[in-house]
Amino acid sequence: MFVPSGYVVSNSCDNQNKIYDLWRHCTTIQKTYFINTPHSTTETALHFFCEELERFREWLTKSFEVEITEENLKKTINIFNENRRLLRQVYELRRQKPPLVSGSEALEIVLSSMMIPKDEHNLLLRRLLDEIEERSIPFEKSARLLVSGSVIGNPELLRLIESVGGCIVADDLCTGSRYFWNLIEEDGEPMKAIAERYLRKIPCPFMYSSEERFRHVREMVKLFDVEGILIFSLKSCDVHSFDAPLLAEELKNNENLPVICLEWEHSLSGIAQLRTRIEAFIEMLE
């Protein structure tokens, strides 16, 4: 059985912080670290975060007897950025009518990026981008949808939408566009660049302001020619649940877009009801 050598948790939300506690008591993993990620993007916060990441670097170095050099960091940043650029290229394919990659496929692609070494994933992505030229998908008029939410760790939910005629062309998800949209600055000090990218990326709702994320959703709507939006609130993901009605209101009133808000759970209980509501929403759009 695979047992990790350690785990690292970021100070994102209460749920995450408590995971740090629970895992300490429910697993035998000895090496644990908590990164005190700030919740604001001010210069003070950035400075604090840079120092925090230096401390984390020191812990990694000591705990695992590794060397983290400036050169290695720069090299890794390049590989990660390459992954982000390639994922963007995959997402570009979804701008087409019909999109060459489905929503559930795109989710699988991003999720797999989180689970295997980035340089390996880059090879897979390059192959995909080559092979996809051969793909032909019959054009079926269906409403172009954007899915907004937090963590969707299983494509089943998106397949459900697709099974009732939904064509998911874009997303605003922790496990979707927000995972890779922002690059790390490749000039200058690597640690500072990493801190800046992670602190000031399109934010998760635990951050001081959600405006940048709402702007990102509007941008996705334009780029991908979105016609309808599904906002998913994951049960107990409170920071997103507070944002959901605000985002919905903004999209409905300011952008004149049809929006549906849905609550769901990782276990997908209540899936029948979800399907009915999603089906009705899609029918309404068409």
């Binding site: 100070n11 912080n17 740090y20 908590f34 919740h39 409170d238 507070f242 605000l246």
Partner: peptide, 27 residues
Amino acid sequence: DTHLKWFQVANRIFKKPLLLLDVPYNV
């Protein structure tokens, strides 16, 4: 987290300065 989110929502109505004291979590 709820304190901040709650006040963010309320502040859509009030539109006043919202001060956040970002306290490091003590481990």
